[in-house]
Amino acid sequence: MLNVALPKGRLGENVYRLFEAAGFPCPSLLDGSRKLIFENEEAQVRYFWAKPSDVAIYVERGAADIGVAGKDILLEYEPDVYELLDLQMGKCRMAVAAPKDYQDDSRYTLKVATKFSRIAREYYTSIGRDIDIIHLNGSIEIAPILGLSDVIVDIVETGTTLKENNLEVIETIVPISARLIANKSSFKFKQAQIEKIVREMSK
C-alpha cells in the first residue's frame, strides 16, 4: 500500500488528477466528503489530506511514502526527503515586499516580518545585510503598515494582496512551485510504485 499525503485545497485536487492519470485512482476522494483518509485497495494506494505546510513532516517521518509540498516549505524546514519532480503547479515566488517608496537605510538593522524565518535569514546573510526577524504566522502584510517591521518576506502569487495594502515587491528571492517528495526509506521498499508515478507524471 502506497501512502500519499496531499495538500488540502485546490492545488491538492489538481495534483490528485495527476496521480489518477498515473494509474492510482481513488474516486471517493473528490466526492465532497469530510473524511481525511481515502483508500483504494485495488490500486494499492491510500491518500490523505494534510495541511500543506505539514506534508513534508508526514513524508519525512514516514507516515506518508510520498507527498506534494511547496518549495517554500522544503526550503524553510529542510526535511530529509527526496525531491523527485517539479510539478510546475502552484507557481508563485518568495519575495521581499515593502511599502511603496520605501528606501533601505543600511545604518539600521532591518526589521523583517515573515513566516519563513530560515529563508529570510539565509537571503539576507547572502547579501550581507544585518536583520532582525519577526516571526509571524499570518497576515504578514499588516506588519509594515503598523510599523512592526520595515519589510516582509512572503509568498507572492498575483500581488493583489500586496497592492491592496499599499505594498510592492522589491526583490524576488526564489521562484516557488509544487514538488513531488518521497521518504528516503520508503523509496527503497516501494521503488517500483514510486518510479511509476514519477515516470507518468513527468510525461
Binding site: D80, K184, S185
Partner: peptide, 9 residues
C-alpha cells in the same frame, strides 16, 4: 542501511 517501516537510515 534501511529497514522497512523505519523512516530513516
Amino acid at each position: 542501511g534501511f529497514i522497512s517501516g523505519v523512516p530513516e537510515e
